[in-house]
Design a protein around this nucleic acid. Sequence first.
DNA 1: CATAAAAATGTGCTCGAACACACATTTTTT
DNA 2: AAAAAATGTGTGTTCGAGCACATTTTTATG
Lengths: 346, 346
Amino acid sequence: MDKKYTIKDIAQMAGVSKGTVDRVLHNRGKVSPAALEKINEVLNVIDYEPNLIARNLKSTKVYRICVLLPDPVFDPYWLPCVNGIQDAIKEFKAYNVNIEIHYFNPESTKSFLKTNEAIVAQSPDAVLLTPLFHKETIEIIKQYDELGIMVNTFNNQVESSSIKSFVGQDLYKSGRVAASLMNLILPKGQIAIIHIDESLKNAVHMQEKERGFRSYFDEKNLSDFSLTTLKLKYSNIETKLPAFINENPGLSGIFITTSKAYQIASTLSNITDEKIVLIGYDLIDKNVSFLNQGLIHFLIHQNQKRQAYLGVSTLVEHFLFRKDIPETILLPIDIINVENASFYIS
Amino acid sequence: MDKKYTIKDIAQMAGVSKGTVDRVLHNRGKVSPAALEKINEVLNVIDYEPNLIARNLKSTKVYRICVLLPDPVFDPYWLPCVNGIQDAIKEFKAYNVNIEIHYFNPESTKSFLKTNEAIVAQSPDAVLLTPLFHKETIEIIKQYDELGIMVNTFNNQVESSSIKSFVGQDLYKSGRVAASLMNLILPKGQIAIIHIDESLKNAVHMQEKERGFRSYFDEKNLSDFSLTTLKLKYSNIETKLPAFINENPGLSGIFITTSKAYQIASTLSNITDEKIVLIGYDLIDKNVSFLNQGLIHFLIHQNQKRQAYLGVSTLVEHFLFRKDIPETILLPIDIINVENASFYIS
DNA sequence: CATAAAAATGTGCTCGAACACACATTTTTT
DNA sequence: AAAAAATGTGTGTTCGAGCACATTTTTATG
């Protein structure tokens, strides 16, 4: 009963030509009520699904998708994204899709705006954004909206009615996951939450993680714990972290809300032999190296590669196969330790 | 420079007809040395990739793939597999592929053999097997091999040169992951490894997990631990487990090598208030329920859904797009606790 | 009622690969 | 020397959807 019907089949069954069937299916042109009814009758009985292969063979329209990504040269955090996008490019190269990556300097709002202009100039069908800068993103999105360019986002969440979709992780929950792991290793003690950032562009990101982390301990009502927040910059870790350790000799755990746990691990290994539990984010090489050395206990995998891949592939499948684009795709919060890390590194 | 060339383009460039180009590309029919050289010259310069869409549109060949799966009625463990396969069916329904699931009773080798016969009678192009019964699987595979039916396996690994591919998890490593988590919670104490099985059909599965689990503690040279292995059957858990707990009052952790951790959790909650750490496998409803209650600490996610999906999709992509089938695909060993479980449940 | 305008419907070509078939040329056989 | 076989090459059709254009039918208007 799973026979595949073609437009020709329907035309024959309804006693009309395939042109008329086509007009009914696509609401194009005029069709007499009589013909409409005959065709609808057939359509109600059978289960017509257009052959996507044939459709995409015919169509000469080339869909253009631009990806706006921070240049991995400035931060290796973004490297997996490039791989994810290249996977998507490879997968869809048989189709009429053109996917381009445009890089910007994550330290510079100017670079962000300039690269956006370059993309706008190309007037693609859709853009996948990494909305690092909130204010600028809102501006840019307005522009895209006016030009009828579809906007998807990933990694960072920005509220805007013009955004079709977001791919990322529930940061609040990921903070809770980190907390649950910390609590498992440390039944009590002082724990620091460290934010490492130069420009506060990840401020919301980090705050959500902290909120989740704290909520876990709040709920548990664990009076055995004391939580301290510490904000560091790349440039002052070497001086401020040792000072902080000195001031807090009872410190037993650190939760790092960015991918820079390796910086803490590295500095820490130079100044103390005490075992401080480190939990951080992302499987970048340096983090994995400290994980293997036992200096980082857990990493939470944000799977940027898959985020980027899904961001692109949902767009492509929307254009090619008319699939719906989900408003939000939340990737699982993968818990990584030294034993299972190798399976997540691609 | 990424222009897509067609056979017609090549024909024109080489000054021959598309028929001759086709003969060169597919080694069919005779071609004069002169024509061959001209065409090869063109092919060396450009980067020809046949349009897969056009190829699959033309081909009328319907590929038939049968999946041999234990009936989820007997064990809910297999339910996610059905979903994974249905995902694959949905994804490829536009193509000429016919995917059928055939169920057998996992308690009965007879049922396994009988269902296999039914599949053989259909003479599909490929079969995806769940090789529960080792001896019978080897026999069956021989039969498939003689008939030229391609065999892929998932979940259970069976050594055979006739098997094209295996999708699953590294069980030894998953045992190690479980051990590392156990060690994190328990700095010392007595730990039991419990195998729950009726027919020992999973014997190899469980042994590998135990081997990995023990290897972790062996390596660490942790003399503070003592590991005991206990084999239970579904029917005698209620009597034997309490007896075991009585005999071993110092027991502080249990590693359950199958998806039946919920049975242990349930029995345990009736006989003792002591906090015993439980680590098991698989996100089946009952396990997740005990995870949420805090009676199970960790579950290792074997992701059967994805295993089944990948088993089918690699086959389909092999037939449709001539992709290589990887010999082994090892899925990551996902660590699940109460905080991140929801993201893995589909 | 004629005729233009509008509405409805059918025909035919395209996309690119695959392959059957027809035809031409050369080689081999009797 | 004619017939038969082998070899080389080009042409044309197919797959199904999409769409432009041609054709037919209906309706409106003087």
